[in-house]
């Protein structure tokens, strides 16, 4: 799935949490650097929260209508795997 498009309006917020330096978060960091500008470009009003903390496991959260949240673990995944996981998360 491409990230260069507007997401479903049911998606209210994306949060990506990972470590600044941990090797387990490397794929996630790479994913953000390459895809974040695209996501914001096509979804300017969607809050995308990127939060870093040393040694924290890489995770992604998606919040849908009425506060329903889903999340996926991104620990030790490569950038394409992260991409697939996040795509799956936001379309669920």
């Amino acid at each position: 799935m491409s990230f260069a498009k507007a997401f479903s309006p049911a998606l209210r917020e994306i949060r990506i949490i990972f470590s600044q330096t941990g090797p387990a978060s490397a794929g996630t960091r790479q994913f953000i650097v390459s895809k974040y500008p695209d996501i914001k470009k096509h979804n300017p009003d969607l809050p995308v929260l990127i939060r870093e903390a040393t040694g924290t496991p890489a995770r992604a959260f998606a919040r849908f209508a009425r506060g329903v949240e889903q999340h996926v673990e991104l620990e030790n995944l490569s950038a394409p795997e992260v991409e697939a996981k996040v795509a799956e998360l936001i379309s669920s």
Partner: peptide, 25 residues
């Protein structure tokens, strides 16, 4: 929501490439 909120008394740095991506946007 943000792991930094429960990391007391330390400041978590923002990594360089992430900050640049944010600034571009």
């Amino acid at each position: 929501i943000s792991p930094t909120l429960v990391r007391y008394d330390v400041t978590e740095p923002t990594s360089q490439e992430i900050a640049i991506a944010g600034l571009k946007t």
